[in-house]
Nucleic acid binder design. Structure first.
Lengths: 110, 110
DNA sequence: ACAATATATGAACATATATTAATATAATAA
DNA sequence: TTATTATATTAATATATGTTCATATATTGT
């Protein structure tokens, strides 16, 4: 059978991930796995934009943008500030933006 | 400088991603966005394992593992070598494994 | 050839999720 | 107050996708 079992406990976290880590990791990558969200995050990496500005610049419907911003806000990847009736969204997670930039650079070098 | 269209080509790539980059990026993150695939990749980051070993260690069905390995193989994230009737799978993309490790570390720091 | 073992494949099913349409809320201005 | 603007929400729909079941393929050993 498997002569390795029983040895990989305690100090060595071994070959398995605990459920909570697994959940956070999968959620993080899921946020970055859809073209619409990638476009939004990439745009926001260049600056702060209102919902309507995002929709116009990316040729998306306002409601689509609003839904995806809620998704990203729930994961605390974006934040917003209000100015009268307008909400300006911006990035709120350096690590995740870094993952995105790394992967875009990597993809562009093929 | 950034008055709408026309100027943000070449040196400044601007606020938009080309379709091909967008596709590669989304596929890459999609690979890392599902718990089963994360478990498999994390296990493979520790060494080389056969399909049945992966299934046993992770308490997954053989067919599930086989399907997900095909997914990962299509994206060239894993490779395999044959030894008699057994296929030993291992990681084949340093950059993607690095993304995974970074994100696991980040998640574990809460 | 046959049996045994390891892995892959295709179809069916269930679930997840992105988008849309319609409507609601909230803030501001007149 | 009413109208206007900006954004959010709910429900419906369509599509994508992960898992399972049944079966197929491929390699090795007898």
């Amino acid at each position: 059978m498997n002569e390795k079992e029983g040895l990989n406990t305690i100090e060595d976290r071994g070959e398995f991930l605990d459920e909570e880590t697994l959940f956070i990791v999968s959620q993080t990558f899921k946020a970055l796995s859809e073209p619409t969200r990638i476009k939004i995050l990439y745009l926001l990496s260049k600056g702060e934009y209102s919902v309507n500005e995002i929709a116009e610049k990316l040729s998306l419907q306002q409601t689509t943008v609003s839904h995806q911003l809620r998704f990203l806000k729930n994961l605390r990847l974006v934040k917003f500030r209000r100015e009268k009736t307008t909400l300006f969204y911006s990035c709120d997670d350096e690590h995740v933006m870094d993952l995105l930039k790394q992967t875009i650079d990597h993809a562009r070098h093929h």
